[in-house]
């Protein structure tokens, strides 16, 4: 459906517009507080500036923070997804192609990974190694590989029986070469679509970790961190939670619509 695509595009334009244009051109500082201008509601003037989305507990402009926060969150989520996707795809291909005990081992790891609620695992690890931007990316990246591995493995199992791969094997090409030269291109598209479908999960996960106060350290804003900080003030300044929440919703809806569209277009119903 074309309408889905249009909605997704509009939402993405809004989100990306905010996270690119605001940090570049919006004059107000996302980090530095003006202590005399705390909790100004949206569209109010304070200190000679208009605050379209209001200010927070330290008098910082929410639009400036939302712009930077969205950029940082998307950065975290993208990098983490790529780590997950690469890790999962490689392990999945290996499992599918080699079979046997390698397959069994990797698939048990997948089960294990899926058997601990993500959020619990992430809390545990962040509590151990301490919260920071890098740690968060690594933890989100490492804990998300399992789905990619499952799909990559299933796809590899199909692909390896294809004629030209059999013939590549027959002429004695090295296994790893076959894997990356012939198998990988075949599963690249479904893995990319899977990534699009998995992004919403990560966006919400990152927000949840931030909500529990274990995300990126202040004063750096992230979508999750903004809601996490804002919730303490939610009863008197609901905009602090409202707008970051809407941004999350917009991103998730856009990814879902886009993902579904990609699934239909590439005929990948098994995802």
């Amino acid at each position: 459906m074309q309408a889905d695509l249009i909605v997704a595009c509009i939402l993405l334009v809004v989100a990306f517009g905010t996270c690119i244009l605001v940090p570049l051109f919006w004059p107000l500082d996302p980090v530095r507080g003006v202590f005399s201008a705390t909790f100004k509601p949206p569209m109010s003037f304070a200190g000679g500036h208009l605050h379209p989305l209001g200010t927070d507990q330290l008098g910082r402009d929410l639009l400036a923070r939302l712009g930077l926060g969205t950029a940082i969150s998307l950065g975290i989520v993208f990098v983490a997804s790529v780590i997950s996707a690469v890790l999962g795809t490689v392990l999945g291909m290996i499992a599918g192609y080699f079979g046997g005990w390698v397959d069994a081992l990797i698939m048990r790891l997948v089960d294990m990974q899926l058997a601990i609620p993500f959020i619990l695992l992430i809390l545990l690890i962040v509590a151990v190694i301490g919260p920071s931007l890098m740690n968060l990316i690594v933890v989100l990246g490492i804990t998300g590989w399992a789905i990619y591995a499952r799909v990559a493995r299933a796809r590899t199992l199909e692909v390896r029986e294809l004629e030209y791969i059999e013939s590549a094997r027959a002429i004695g090409q090295r296994k790893l070469f076959i894997l990356f030269r012939h198998v990988l291109p075949n599963i690249l598209v479904p893995q990319t679509v899977l990534l699009t479908l998995d992004l919403p999960r990560l966006i919400i996960l990152e927000a949840s970790v931030g909500f529990l106060g274990l995300g990126v350290q202040p004063p750096t804003p992230t979508l999750g961190g903004l809601i996490g900080e804002g919730r303490s003030f939610m009863l008197i300044a609901n905009w602090l939670v409202l707008y970051p929440g809407l941004m999350i919703a917009a991103l998730v809806i856009a990814c879902n619509l886009l993902g579904d569209w990609l699934v239909r277009r590439n005929d990948l119903r098994e995802l």
Binding site: P131, G213, L214, Q217, P219
Partner: peptide, 10 residues
């Protein structure tokens, strides 16, 4: 200043 906000027990 580099800020670090930690859980109480940690």
């Amino acid at each position: 200043v580099k800020q670090k906000v930690l859980d109480w027990s940690v």
